[in-house]
Nucleic acid binder design. Structure first.
Lengths: 312, 312
DNA sequence: TAGGGGCAACAACCTGCAGTTGTTGTTCAG
DNA sequence: CTGAACAACAACTGCAGGTTGTTGCCCCTA
């Protein structure tokens, strides 16, 4: 299917005749005629009945018309999404399964009128660079990276401290525990696949392991969260960290437990980063929304990596 | 924007490299490379970063990808809508403002899983022919047309008797009447634009005028229902017929009245027509839904044209 | 460190299609 | 009966989109 032909079809449906449609499209009548002939041959149905006074839609034409308009609209949206200037608000999230993706979803529900594009960049470094260059308008990250400082003109505000939960199967040693302490995790095997080295997730878990002693496998093949939970559910020794905010379709036949971790509670500190002089109107709305809906900090003592402390 | 290029882009995003995408598309790597180059030039942004081990999405590429998929999906739906066989259920309604359009909307709400296309054909004759030829699966019409009989193999069942309401402005003689009788309408001027001669609407109002004596203008330019209501609201003599089921955005500043017509109540008899041997699964669902939600007949005496009486 | 493999871009060529101009055939209004 | 309006048909042309052949880059391995 050729979009130029579709555009010609819609133009004729609007104009009622080939001639006028051709003028609208800055083409000759013959060119329009050919486009329609090609489209009709493509689809195998007649779309227009040619009369001496113009053209009328056949039944198939009537049926196609709204779909054709939708198609052109989809094209327009696609082009607009990457058009420099006046494009949709672009937000980078750590991962589509992470809690920040939920925050963005909430924002979209609250402000459906603001066009939104969500991307996932490789690591905080890439994300900060992208924000600085204006390639994305905002990013949810744990600031700052170890040994790094934010570039000038980039602002950050903490929006969510995400407490970790230990996810274990029914035969695990902690399956019936009301809670565990990080100290109890020393020597445990915790599996966190899908965290590429160099990302701040990986750095976070590395520091957590170094501080409290569990062995955390942040590498290894990532076959998706379903496969991960499958493995956890069947193992008496393996565990993983999950957030209670992680939007999951919990498999009904897996008897998994989410055990809180306390004294201190390891939290993953999400902040919103943006460029101070970014004039995008959606950005201000996003900041306002996030601050308004920001939950209270976790009660009790929390732990986060030293490098992740936000000054604000 | 060229759909072939978009398809190449999505193929690369899925495959991770030009080479494999080219194989998937049954093209050479060079052709795919050219398509992407053209697309990038078109959009004015770089979509892919070429690496020695394949290609990765840029930020713009990440943003475009879901839009590109949506675009291809819209194309697929458009093609499917006119593909002979296994296409969506096609229903013809008298007009998108008429009550039958509301019935179809209700059906779609009740069965969103059944793909539906709505068309509006010129008159009952065209509609019945279309049903006979299989071009549409069902039509809502007033059967039978004067002097016509339904072709063999076409079945009809009455689904709605739509009572007419007289719509008048605040200065009209009947503006404060609780109801009027058709006999009272003798000599009144009633304006029903947009009913082309030869359609059953027109035939209906002609017979109504002949039976009870009002003068009904079924011709004249149709500037849309808003313009009609505008005129009615300002005139002390003009009136029009509306159905209370007509889905309208009632203009707040127009003090229009809908006066019931009784003794007898003129009703517009909508029936569903379909081809007995049409195997479309959605058709059975539509019939079932309509019969289940069919309202009781209007109370009191009703009037309808002799030719519109349904034998069932 | 050299060599081979894998990948994408570049170059040259070729086919065909999309556009143009010119013309015909049909219908309708005056 | 004639002219105007409209769409289809015919012939020509240029370039877009494909092909094959080749280069250049990077990475892995011996």
């Amino acid at each position: 299917m050729d979009l130029k032909a579709v555009r010609a079809f819609v133009a004729i449906a609007d104009a009622g005749q080939f001639q006028k449609a051709a003028v609208d499209l800055s083409l000759t009548q013959q060119a329009v005629s050919k486009r329609i002939a090609a489209l009709e041959k493509d689809l195998g149905v007649r779309l227009l009945v040619r009369t001496p006074r113009g053209a009328e839609l056949t039944i198939d034409g009537q049926v196609l018309l709204p779909h054709a308009r939708a198609l052109l609209q989809a094209e327009e949206r696609a082009v607009a999404a990457v058009r420099p200037g006046e494009r949709a608000l672009r937000v980078d999230v750590l991962g589509r399964r992470a809690a920040t993706a939920g925050l963005v979803r909430d924002f979209h529900r609250a402000h459906p009128e603001i066009p939104l594009d969500v991307v996932t960049l490789f690591d905080a470094d890439t994300a900060v660079t992208a924000v600085r260059d204006g390639a994305v308008d905002a990013t949810f990250r744990a600031v700052t990276m170890p040994g790094r400082r934010l570039p000038d003109g980039i602002e950050a505000v903490p929006v969510l401290d995400e407490p970790l939960r230990l996810c274990v199967g029914p035969d695990h040693e902690f399956a019936r525990a009301a809670s565990v302490t990080p100290a109890q995790l020393a020597g445990q095997r915790i599996w966190m696949p899908g965290n590429a080295p160099g990302t701040e997730w990986s750095a976070y878990y590395d520091e957590l392991a170094e501080t409290f002693g569990p062995s955390i496998d942040t590498i290894g093949p990532n076959f998706g969260v379903e496969a991960l939970l499958d493995t956890i559910a069947g193992s008496p020794t393996l565990a993983t960290f999950l957030s209670e905010r992680t939007p999951l379709v919990w498999p009904a036949d897996h008897d998994l437990r989410l055990v809180p971790v306390c004294d201190p509670t390891p939290v993953y500190p999400h902040s919103l980063l943006w460029r101070t002089d970014n004039p995008h109107p959606g950005l201000a709305a996003l900041r306002t929304h996030l601050l308004a809906t920001r939950p209270r900090l976790t009660e009790g003592e929390v732990w986060k990596p030293a490098w992740a402390t936000v000054t604000s």
